[in-house]
C-alpha cells in the first residue's frame, strides 16, 4: 500500500490517511469522502481538483472538523504536524482553527458578517487567539489590510463588507485568514466567484504571500488552469476518491487516469483553436450517490473499462514515475487490451 507522503520531496505538514466522511439520510448512507489519502508539503501548494459532488469541499471541511449533522467523519486520520486532529477535543480544535490552520471560502459575501466592520472582524481573531487589546488589534488589522494590497487601509477598516467590491472582500477574507500567521491555509474555490482579471490579482497575491510567509496551501478548485498556475502537487478526485495524485508538471504533461485525460480533453481552451473539431467528451454523468458503482467509480463512464473495472475497486498504486494512480490499466491484473493508450 502506498503512502501519500511517498511522492513529496518536502516534509509534509498535513497528512490525510484513509479519510471517510459520510452523510446519513433515512434511506441510505452517502459516502461523500470515501477513503481519501493525500499529504500537503511544507511551504508548498497541494491542489484538490474535481467536479461537483467529487467530495473536494467535504474533504476540506473535514480537515477542520467542520462537518455538521447529518454528516460525520467515520474513519481515518488527519495528521497535522504529526498529531491526529480527530483525537483532539473541541476546545483544542478551536485553538487550531483560525490560528494554525485557516480557511477561505468561495463566496466572500456570505462568509463575512454584514453587521460588523471589516476591522472588527479581522481584530476578532487577534483578540481570541492572541489575547490582544482592542486598540492594538485594530492597528494590526490595518497592517493586514496593507499586506493584502487594500488601498487606504485606515479608512477601509471602518467599512462594512457591502461597501467593498467582490475582489476587495476576498482580500479581506485572506487578511482575516492570515491574521494569526497560520501554517496551513485551506482555500476552497477562492476565486470561482470572481472575474478573471480580479482572479489574476488574487492568485498573484496568494502566491506572493506564500513566499513571504512560508505557509502551506490546500487549493480546492474545479479549474485545471488554476491548478497549473498555483499548485505544486495535485490530487484529482472523483466520487469521493482520489483517482490520481501527482506532481503538477507530470499531471499535465502525462495524465494517466482516464478521468483526468477526459477532463483535460473536454476543456475548451482560449489559446488553442480546434477549428471544426468536436470537443472530446466524457460520456454520461456522475452517478447518483445511492447508486454507487461497485467497482471503479469511473467505470460506467470510462471508454476503456473492462470486466475487472466493473467488478472490483482498484487501489491507489505507485506508477513508474513515482506518482500515484487508481486504475486497473496500470496493474498486472489488467484484463483489457494490453496495448491500451489512455493518453493518445
Amino acid at each position: 500500500m502506498v503512502k501519500p507522503t511517498d511522492i513529496l520531496k518536502e516534509e509534509p505538514i498535513l497528512e490525510v490517511r484513509n479519510l471517510q466522511t459520510s452523510f446519513f439520510t433515512e434511506k441510505f448512507e452517502v459516502k461523500a469522502v470515501d477513503g481519501v489519502n493525500f499529504a500537503v508539503p511544507k511551504g508548498k501548494t497541494l491542489g484538490i481538483v474535481g467536479e461537483s459532488g467529487s467530495g473536494k469541499s467535504i474533504t476540506s471541511l473535514s480537515i477542520l472538523r467542520l462537518i455538521q449533522n447529518p454528516g460525520k467523519i467515520i474513519g481515518g486520520e488527519i495528521l497535522f504536524k504529526g498529531e491526529n486532529l480527530l483525537d483532539k477535543s473541541e476546545a483544542q480544535m478551536r485553538r487550531v482553527r483560525g490560528n494554525e490552520i485557516s480557511m477561505i471560502f468561495q463566496e466572500p459575501m456570505t462568509s463575512l458578517n454584514p453587521v460588523y466592520t471589516v476591522g472588527q472582524q479581522i481584530s476578532e481573531s487577534y483578540r481570541i487567539h492572541q489575547n490582544i487589546g482592542k486598540k492594538e488589534a485594530m492597528l494590526r488589522s490595518i497592517d493586514m489590510l496593507k499586506l493584502v494590497g487594500i488601498p487606504s487601509p485606515e479608512q477601509r477598516v471602518k467599512q462594512y463588507p457591502h461597501e467593498l467590491s467582490g475582489g476587495m472582500r476576498q482580500r479581506v477574507m485572506i487578511a482575516m485568514a492570515l491574521a494569526c500567521d497560520p501554517e496551513l491555509l485551506i482555500a476552497d474555490e477562492p476565486t470561482t466567484a470572481l472575474d478573471v482579471t480580479i482572479q489574476a490579482q488574487i492568485l498573484e497575491l496568494m502566491k506572493e504571500l506564500q513566499q513571504r510567509l512560508g505557509m502551506s496551501i490546500v487549493m480546492i478548485t474545479h479549474d485545471l488552469g488554476v491548478v497549473a498556475e498555483t499548485c505544486d502537487y495535485v490530487a484529482v478526485m472523483y466520487m469521493g476518491k482520489v483517482v490520481e495524485y501527482a506532481k503538477v508538471a507530470d499531471l499535465f504533461k502525462n495524465p494517466k487516469h482516464p478521468y483526468t485525460v477526459g477532463l483535460l480533453n473536454s476543456l475548451p481552451r482560449h489559446d488553442i483553436d480546434l477549428g471544426d473539431e468536436e470537443l472530446t467528451v466524457i460520456k454520461g454523468s456522475v452517478p447518483s450517490p445511492d447508486n454507487m458503482p461497485k467497482g471503479c467509480r469511473f467505470a460506467p463512464r470510462c471508454p476503456f473499462a473492462s470486466e475487472i473495472c466493473v467488478e472490483q475497486l482498484p487501489d491507489l498504486e505507485q506508477s513508474e514515475d513515482g506518482n500515484q494512480i487508481r486504475c486497473w490499466i496500470y496493474t498486472d491484473e489488467w484484463d483489457g487490451d494490453p496495448e491500451v493508450k489512455v493518453n493518445g
Binding site: 467590491s165 498573484e204 497549473a228 503538477v248 499535465f252 482560449h270
Partner: peptide, 27 residues
Amino acid sequence: KALLSAIPVPDPDIETKKERIILQGDV
C-alpha cells in the same frame, strides 16, 4: 490583451513562461 492573459491555462509550461498583465483596481 489583459483579459486573455489573465486566464490560467491548464499547462504549467505555458503558465511559467507567459507574461501576465495584472490589471490594477476594479471595474
